[in-house]
């Protein structure tokens, strides 16, 4: 039981940490924050990987878990790239304005 309690302990602290981290986020960043945190939720990939090792729990386990690896990988790869693409757009706009201001 103590391990379950430890996990619950970690979970609750992490929730509060998360709430504190992004308390004030400007509207401009709402979408990138969402797609970025989406990529982070792809962290389930590590749980999926550890279950997908062949030979531990039979073939069905491996198939289910590697499907999970695939879905989570789409999340990770797609999520980070699309967030970067969006943020690059914001930055491109900023740089050009700065140049204009200097000219």
């Amino acid at each position: 039981m103590s391990l379950a309690l430890t996990y619950a302990f970690i979970f609750i602290l992490a929730m509060f940490l998360g709430l504190e981290l992004i308390r004030r986020v400007p509207a401009q960043l709402h979408t990138p924050l969402m797609s970025g945190s989406n990529a982070i939720s792809g962290i389930s990939i590590i749980g999926a990987m550890s279950l997908a090792v062949v030979g531990d729990g039979g073939m069905l386990t491996t198939i289910l878990a590697s499907a999970a690896v695939g879905f989570a990988a789409v999340n990770v790869v797609g999520g980070y790239l699309v967030t970067d693409r969006m943020l690059a757009m914001f930055q491109a706009g900023k740089k050009r304005d700065a140049k204009k201001g200097g000219a």
Partner: peptide, 8 residues
């Protein structure tokens, strides 16, 4: 990490 995403 899941909790961080849940909070955000």
């Amino acid at each position: 990490t899941g909790a961080l995403v849940g909070a955000s």
